[in-house]
Design a protein around this nucleic acid. Sequence first.
DNA 1: TAGTGGTCTAGACCACTTC
DNA 2: AAGTGGTCTAGACCACTAA
Lengths: 259, 259
Amino acid sequence: MNENRPTPSRRIAEDLRSDITSGRLQPGWKLPSGRELARRYGVTQNTANRALSILAAEGLIVVKTGSGTYVRESHPIRRLGPDRYARHKWQNTIVTVHADDRPDGETVEQQGGQTQDVALTEADEEIAAALGIEVGAPVYERARVMTRDNHPTHTMNSYYRREDVEGTAIVDPRPGIAGRGGGFAVLSERGLEPYEITEDISARMPTTEEALLLELPAGEPVVEVRRTTRTREGRPIEYARGVHAASRFLWSFTYPIPD
Amino acid sequence: MNENRPTPSRRIAEDLRSDITSGRLQPGWKLPSGRELARRYGVTQNTANRALSILAAEGLIVVKTGSGTYVRESHPIRRLGPDRYARHKWQNTIVTVHADDRPDGETVEQQGGQTQDVALTEADEEIAAALGIEVGAPVYERARVMTRDNHPTHTMNSYYRREDVEGTAIVDPRPGIAGRGGGFAVLSERGLEPYEITEDISARMPTTEEALLLELPAGEPVVEVRRTTRTREGRPIEYARGVHAASRFLWSFTYPIPD
DNA sequence: TAGTGGTCTAGACCACTTC
DNA sequence: AAGTGGTCTAGACCACTAA
């Protein structure tokens, strides 16, 4: 099947798409209803709906069932660079347990919140390789869901060797500890000062669970970030895996050209 | 509408999905046909097809019209890091014009090829900002489509200030010049040695044109890379914008934690 | 309660691939 | 020629939203 044979639904989608990209339909505006499009183009409602779902899969519109379909509004995009791990942001952090009376440094996450779950589990192959331990070895998992303006934006699951964090605030299941820098501060106190980070970045479509958890509209991919943190000696102290709603973030790296 | 109400099509999709993730259906294997599923589940072919298109949108299967649907096979993933720009890869490159008699250094791109289009055009806002010039100023655009095993993997459009590359091999429309390092070598000869790179990385669904050009299956997002190259003095000499098939690449960055 | 998107059945045809 | 995915009409019902 020629992927671009003009079928009625594709023609309708095309019209609407050009209305959107040209600005005739502004972000946030409501599109004609499926029944209205059906009437206008002399097709079935089913066919008109198909046109809408094409645009939804492209991420151009957002569907609010029962209400209508709307031109997608772009969120402000957060630029993520190495700075967000900067030492001065956690170096002098007093590790408190309650989110409310945290002194400062957490203005980084302003307007943001997070849930937290801590569990002792076993290292799978990926975690084991990253932390330099055996598969099945006990690791602490700190699972977080970050939110912004009351909507989830990304998850971040950190893994630590058991002996590295046993008894520390990291393992305290109460929320509040270790926003961005708390974990690093705790590790530092333990003599495991973070020195180097490796970030691996890739993108894919979300699983159904992720789509639900992150409230992703149809047509929104996710970016997967795998982060390994090591001491100056190269000893891995944290492995983290995060899933981000793609439209809300941008990763930025600046580096000198290597020899 | 509850996004997870179990409808017939979703139930079928769910069954197939678990067959795939569990390994009962191996990558490359053929799924039951729509008509067969319809018969098995007692639904319309239309409904069965809908189930398949759900999986396609998730990127789990690949559809070969007229032949069948198949469990998606994962490509080998290329890991992209700063090394690919390393000086030794282009420092001593003799800039030849024909791809065939290139001395070496291009083993980097083994099994790969590229098309090339050069044009003199006008800087849009984004390009102008990156290159530090006025909007509408003349820039050379070098548009490339990279292929691997005869399939396109990504595009890369580079932009240069006109005066920087006028008369150089970069502007020669014949293919062959400037695979990875050629452009850098030429700029170096002009006294504009690349020193620092900034890469901005984001992901989204492809436009219809991109999907066609990159032969993207349904449910494959793209990663957009914006690269700015500067001299030691901070003078921008190249701005490039690339679109990558997400499933074929991974970006990796290692850096010390900043202060 | 009226309007919205979402989904379904039943039946049909098209373009493509495979043999 | 048989089988495949893709799409369509016609008509129907459901769950949800908003007034």
